[in-house]
Every structure is written in C-alpha cells, then in structure tokens.
Amino acid sequence: MSSVLRVIPHLIGIHIRTHMEYRGALFIGWIAQAIGYAGIYASIALLLARFENLGGWTWPQMALLLAFHLLAYALGASLSFVQFRDMEEKVRLGTFDAILVKPIGPWTFLAFSGLNIEYGGHIALAIGLMVWSVSNLGIDWSPGLVLYFLAAIVSAAMLTAALMTMIGATALIWVRSRHLFSIFFGFWELARYPLNIFPLPLQIMMITFAPLGFLAFIPTAVALGKPVPILGDWAGPASLAIGPLFVLLAIVHWRYCLRNYQGAGG
C-alpha cells in the first residue's frame, strides 16, 4: 500500500508534464469549456430572470446547485472520465494489456497517470459561481455546516468516480461501454435541476440505482435547509454515505470485470 502511495505522485507528475508540452491548448481548453458551461448556466439564469423561481429555487440558490454539480463532477471526473471513457479503445488496441503487465493496480495506474487537469476550467467556473452565490445567499455557516458541505463535495466526487469506473469496467467484458456513458450523462443533466420538479418515479430513480440526485441537489438542499423529497431528514447522512458506498460497489465490480477480462479476443 505504501509503495502504491509513493508511486502516485510520479504518475500524476508524468501526466502533468505531458500537458505542459501543450500548455497553450490546455489553457484555451479551460476557457472554452468554462464558456460552454457558462452558456447553459446563462440560459437557466435567463429563465429564472423571467420566472423568478424553479420548484421553489431562486437564481442564487440555483447557482449554488449548479456550482456544486460542476465542482463535484469535475473533481470525480478528473480521476475517471477520460480514462474510463477510452476503455473501449484501450481494450481494442491492446493498450490495456500493456497496463496489466505492470506490477501496479490497473485502476491506480489509469486514474492517476491520467489525472485530468483539463478540468481546471470547470473547477474555476464552479468555484467562482459558488463564491458569488454564497455571498448572495446569507447562509448561516456554522462549523458543522462547513464540514458537512466539504464532506458532501468529496462524497459526490467519489460517487462520480465510482460510477465512471463501473461503466468503464464493463468494457473489459463487453468491449463496448461508451453507450453507458450517454445514459450516465442523461441523468447527470437532470441532476442540475431541483429534484422536486420531476415526476415521482424519476425522483426515486435518481436516489436509487441512478443516484445522481446525490451529485448536487441533495447536499445543496441540505445546506440551504430546503426539503428533500422521499429522504427527508435522512438526506444529510445519506449524502455523506453514498460516495464511500459506491466506491465499495465499484471496487467489487472492477475486480469482477478484471477477473473475467477477455482481451480484444482472438
């Protein structure tokens, strides 16, 4: 374990050095992605400017929800999305085989040697938006609430990385997994709106087997003292437990897929 921890900084370092070779493209990519998201957020802001609130959420409250959504996602995805989205190609071209002949866990190698600093734009936009919304909301930040808020971000980031890992791992058995990412992003898009505006079956789905309700809505609602459908008072503890729980599930699934890895066949 300690030897793994010693390798991690070197894995991260090598990826960052790669990006530094193209720092211009990296920087422009940050700005471009931030603008991409800002466009969607501006649309939501325009909608709220005309309609005042959405399911009881005002624009500053929505802004906190959007910022939480983007921050938790970017933190989790930097460890997982591009790495596991390309699992299909890695299997097909045999580059995954090349990872399996190294004396290191393939998840550790993939996640950290690909630690994606391209999410810098996401994170900067998310933090900026979060600071703006918090300064406009007048939340009573007790030490407990601050701790909860930070822990909830970590938990939501863990949930993201765990789900991406599970989706990518299926490529080890079925070779294809990209389509599952489109399904993930379907729910991910829903997760940036208040859960209470959706029909009940969808709400249930979003807190059970497609638990992206926990990505942003539930922790933000808890922090703002807003009611959470279905979960009620359990929302706070549940949002902290969900990340570790899914990490455990992802470990089991990843190991299962690795054991049954077939290569590209033939």
Partner: peptide, 25 residues
C-alpha cells in the same frame, strides 16, 4: 509490444524510465 508503445509519447525517453523505476521499485 511491438506496435503498442509503452513510452510516454510527448515526454523525453528518460521520463518513462524514471516512472518505471518507481512502479517497479
């Protein structure tokens, strides 16, 4: 693997060796 490089494409050869030094301890 003949056609699949295990070297880091954008970095000096030495960097890949250095990483392996840590991975293989």
């Amino acid at each position: 693997f003949g056609q699949r490089s295990q070297l880091w494409w954008d970095l000096p050869v030495r960097d890949s060796y250095d990483l392996n030094r840590h991975i293989y301890d």
